[in-house]
Design a protein around this nucleic acid. Structure first.
Lengths: 330, 330
DNA sequence: CTGAAAGCGCTTACAG
DNA sequence: CTGAAAGCGCTTACAG
């Protein structure tokens, strides 16, 4: 490692005391301009960078937030993480990445890690119990979750999204709609997709076939259940998939049985995942405004950290329908 | 924040000196078993977790590696990052995520951040100049890169992969192959895909149409060039795309012009991206063994950190062809 | 407005 | 084998 100047070196070079250097670095009020200039000159000359670990030890903060999610290997989470890192960086925070599903005893592990590393806050997407993080006293913002406890979260208009999916399916000529998706033991805002879908159809006088499975569930199970449903209801001509990931799987399963999409069965997903900034997967889906949601999550969490606000805050973002090639042209 | 016991509390509780607590925590040799037991009991009782920042200040290490890449929002990078985090966690290292393309003056920024935060090492995927990281004295492992300097990297058998793509295209009945892709100013191992592709075809007595563009390049440019090529060579019936991301775009562009894949034009990509553990995108591609590559990168980088090895090491992993629906059944 | 000093929670020679 | 002590590089009352 190369020589690294310390604050002491800067103080000596500038001919001032240690405290003054610290004050100019932290933009403390009431420092003479001349002192500021001397210190800044010395900093430049010595190529000084403050040591975050020494600072962290003193002020008990690390300027980092942990992003805890099932797996970064997922386009929805990856896009979200991309924007979270972006907005955190703008606020001078760092992002520690934690893949939840990597870790056998994850909760334990990450709580310990958070304490150990002075993690300032957590942004987290998980459908397990989060009480422990909460009780550990670390500010936390969740995605999509609905809690008994007063945890803040950001989510999309899941109910409206469900309705929209139903509406679009009908608009595209579907006569026998179906739903496929999973849900968790803990109540989650995501469940409203199902509710909105069901209610819209019922209002329009439609019935629908339903595969709604409790997690944890394997892909094999999902596939089996889907085909059971299809065998029982061969007239099905449109399916709303809970998430785009699931839509991708459903599309593959149907292809294996040589059922063509969208000719025989039309598909609408939820999330609006994209492989890149301006690339498209080409699927029909209900898009969540991920950049805005990430920005909001970052703002909420930083507000909690810096202003010690701990009321529950819930932000819900509007969704929109994106036409792709898994529905028919109309 | 909840009360947090310090090492001093543990020492008092256990009735030993501070140093002894430190020794048992760090598994220093030559501590009496009885002392170990007393200390461990106190740790348990007080629910003590060591403070990484105090430790880091002392030993000048943070047990974290920065992963620097263009953007986590990309299935190839996301899968890679997933495994990197996994293997780092197993070795008790943490992952700081840095999206390169977020940041205007990224190099500057991340070097400063690395120094500031005692980053132990960097794993990095970038096609810009890395000299600066290197000169900053921080151990670094790169992906895919070929450097003048002695930087270690892991990559796949790009040359063989290029040959394999050509071979598979011909095997699937393609008579008029083409290539599309981009390259960077700095030499990179990735360029061998093009070379392997070209050489195999030439050996087999084939010509091929070529769109090989120097980065930075926009998607619009890629699309325009592709259609220029197709207009000039309407007989093209198979294209090797440099990366799977590009294949996805090409597929969309062809669809817009109502050129059917694989009936009119067959497509083979490179990378083997998947949306999830056991999901598939269904494209035909040359798969890189990402989990193994990530594991190797982690091992290389930790070896550099812990054993202060700084020789250049290059690891090259074999690739395989995956049959999808962008090539014809044979 | 700025010095001098204490202290954050660890690790690690140095004695013994 | 283990105490006592110095010190890592900062921040922040406290004087002046």
């Amino acid at each position: 490692m190369v020589f690294m100047a310390t604050m002491k070196d800067v103080a000596r070079e500038a001919g001032v005391a240690l405290g003054s250097v610290s004050r100019v670095i932290n933009h403390a009020p009431g420092v003479k301009q001349k002192t500021i200039d001397k210190v800044n000159a010395a900093i430049k000359k010595l190529n000084y960078v403050p040591d975050e670990y020494a600072r962290g030890l003193k002020v008990k903060s690390s300027k980092t937030v942990a992003l805890i999610l099932p797996s970064i290997w997922n386009l929805f989470f990856a896009e979200f993480a991309y924007y979270v890192e972006k907005y955190l960086a703008e606020k001078n925070y760092k992002l520690l990445l934690c893949n939840y599903s990597n870790n056998p005893k994850a909760e334990q592990h990450y709580i310990k890690m958070a304490k150990q590393n002075k993690i300032d806050a957590i942004i987290c997407i998980t459908y397990d119990d989060l009480d422990k993080y909460f009780y550990a006293g670390i500010p936390l913002v969740s995605i999509d979750r609905y809690f008994e406890q007063k945890i803040s979260y950001v989510t999309s208009e899941n109910y409206e999204g469900g309705r929209l999916a139903a509406e679009e399916l009908l608009k595209h000529g579907v006569k026998h709609p179906a739903f496929i998706g999973t849900y968790n033991h803990n109540p989650s805002d995501v469940m409203k997709r199902h509710k909105g879908f069901a209610e819209y159809l019922s209002e329009q006088g439609y019935e629908f076939a339903d595969v709604y499975l409790l997690e944890p569930v394997t892909k094999e199970k999902e596939e089996t259940e889907l085909f059971k449903l299809l065998d029982k209801n061969p007239e099905i001509d449109g399916i709303f998939c809970n998430t785009d990931s699931l839509l991708l799987d459903v599309k593959n399963w149907l292809a294996q049985r040589e059922i063509s999409v969208p000719e025989q069965i039309q598909l609408i997903g939820y999330d609006g995942i994209k492989p890149d900034f301006n690339s498209e997967l080409g699927i029909s889906t209900i898009r969540q405004p991920l950049p805005e949601m990430a920005k909001c999550a970052v703002e909420m969490v930083i507000e909690k950290v810096e202003q010690h606000r701990d009321e529950q805050r819930i932000e819900r973002f509007p969704v929109s329908y994106i036409e792709g090639n898994t529905t028919k042209n109309i």
